[in-house]
Nucleic acid binder design. Structure first.
Lengths: 230, 230
DNA sequence: CTATGTGAAAGAATTCACAGCA
DNA sequence: TGCTGTGAATTCTTTCACATAG
């Protein structure tokens, strides 16, 4: 599950708060899921809690970190030092959670040489050298969309096999390379959908039953609700 | 589906490239899904393509925008003008996709008054006034984790019903309020898991069959693979 | 003949509910 | 008694495959 990292975050918070042990119910709350799901997820790890007691917080942290491969700090290359790239370069949430931004790169020579958070921006031509020097395994793309595919190709060419893509476009990569995409505008658009739905519903007070009125788009509200998950 | 925004992005790209019509296959490629899924999704919208031809790009854009509630530009309040908040405030991907950052707020008085991208940072005390003045429907939280719940409470109190949360913590909100979370470190951790898995597999050359060796964490590789989606 | 729209099949994910261990 | 771990039941999603409209 892609929920393990969320459990890990919750566990760290619990550990900081002094808990040595936690029930599936307690951890589930802290992670924002229900307890049955959490227990099922953890059981897939073969992780053992203690019946009648719960899970040992420190032990579970170790287990999950080992499964996620976070026992070593991973070096990351960030390509694209615009607005967003700048913020990512300065984001301390990475360092505290197992990652080290080991290189900043940009295609714009006017940005090369700039120093951000103790790191100098290098030209993207140096990618190959930097990846080797720093044993970089993960690339982050924060360029404009039109440049993203070319950057992805270069990352793959120099041996990077995991990419986090902030550019609003789909990347095509060979098998064996993993890509995750974060599109900030899409997140807002999903919220917009929910807003739109809520507005439509309150505008039609208490029309239960089958005759539920059509939305602006010409759709029954129930269909539309079904049409967008979460 | 939360895939409609992705289709919308792909459609805009196609429109910009001069396409007036597109097949389910073509749009599916541009959006990074398969065509059966795309057709099923669009059929839920009641959207009509033309058999033998495909979908009218402009028409489909209108339909999806209307379903997502993007026919009007939505005003957004951004709380927390640190590193990430700064980047979000300057991100032009919002404006071009139906959103207007209408207010920047921060609890830190030393930041109040600062101007970012033509907007002045205001103190979070003014939230109530600003939300009313600007008809804000969506709040974005880019504060440190410890402050996020309090900000969420305030947003809810002044009538915001959708929240995009960048702080690494779960928010509890009343029914009827939608929250989406983006946690950048979690995205990297998921990639780390994939890296870890790939490394383990190549380290054990061609050990097929049931005896597939254990990972560092003491798990069979197949179990672990099953344990994290996508 | 082409490509949509959609029942039906297959596959995942979630939830239920409880046996069994501490 | 309290809480985990897990089969069984349920629900949701994805894929298949084809009748049907243009």
């Amino acid at each position: 599950m892609s929920r393990l990292p969320e459990y890990l975050r919750a566990l760290h918070a619990l550990a900081d708060a002094g808990h040595e042990t936690v029930s599936s119910e307690g951890l589930a709350n802290a992670a924002g899921v229900n307890s049955a799901k959490l227990r099922k997820d953890l059981s897939h790890l073969g992780s053992y809690g203690t019946r009648g007691v719960g899970y040992d917080v420190a032990l579970l942290i170790d287990q999950i970190e080992s499964v996620l491969g976070l026992t070593q700090c991973r070096a990351v290359a960030l390509v694209g030092v615009g607005n967003l790239g700048h913020a990512l370069a300065g984001y301390d949430g990475f360092a505290s959670r197992g990652f080290r931004i080991a290189a900043l790169l940009d295609a714009d020579r006017s940005r090369v040489g700039e120093q951000i958070n103790g790191l100098v921006v290098r030209h993207v031509d140096e990618l190959s050298r930097v990846v080797a020097e720093e044993s970089i395994s993960i690339g982050v793309i924060a360029t404009p969309a039109p440049a993203a595919q070319a950057v992805a190709d270069e990352l793959v060419a120099v041996g990077v096999t995991s990419i986090l893509n902030f550019a609003p476009c789909v990347l095509s990569v060979p098998d064996g390379v993993d890509v995750r995409k974060v599109d900030l505008a899409i997140e807002l658009q999903i919220l917009s959908f929910h807003e739109h739905r809520k507005a439509s519903l309150t505008a039609l007070p208490a029309t239960g039953g089958p005759g539920l009125a059509a939305l602006p788009g010409g759709l029954a509200a129930t269909d539309t609700q079904e049409a967008i998950g979460t």
